[in-house]
């Protein structure tokens, strides 16, 4: 395994952990459910994708096989994680969780009045 590939793997894994950390800070610091959900579902997806991509490249260069499970995991998280975020947000809205005071737009409420 040469140095360039080691660097690429390290960058992917560190970027993934950094993005996961950023989303954890977002969940702690943002004001309401929707913005927190935005932080959690978006940047965690990318963080996990980057970490898994680093894993995929690592096993390809060290063992010479493409781990199909890792590839499938990347695809599956990419499909399902945003949908989970959408469903949590919608469930929160349908049960009447208020938006934070900073919010200026509420398109669903406007559409529901029609």
């Amino acid at each position: 395994m040469n140095v360039v590939i080691e660097w690429i793997i390290a960058i992917f894994v560190l970027l993934g952990t950094f993005l996961s950390l950023v989303s954890a800070f977002g969940v702690l610091r943002l004001p309401d459910v929707y913005t927190r959900n935005h932080a959690a579902s978006k940047s965690t997806t990318l963080g996990v994708l980057c970490t898994l991509l680093g894993t995929l490249i690592f096993f390809y260069t060290s063992d010479g096989v493409i781990q199909s499970r890792v590839l499938l995991g990347i695809l599956f998280i990419f499909i399902t994680s945003p949908v989970a975020g959408h469903l949590i947000s919608r469930a929160a809205y349908e049960t009447g969780v208020d938006l934070s005071n900073y919010s200026v737009r509420d398109d669903i409420a406007r559409d529901k009045k029609k």
Binding site: R69, L72, L75, F76, I79, T80, V83, H86, R90, E94
Partner: peptide, 23 residues
Amino acid sequence: MKTNDLILQTTTKIAVFIILLFS
């Protein structure tokens, strides 16, 4: 405005095949 489960159902149709193949 009527609510529907379009996103959930469409994703389920794809995800179920992946899960079944993986199982």
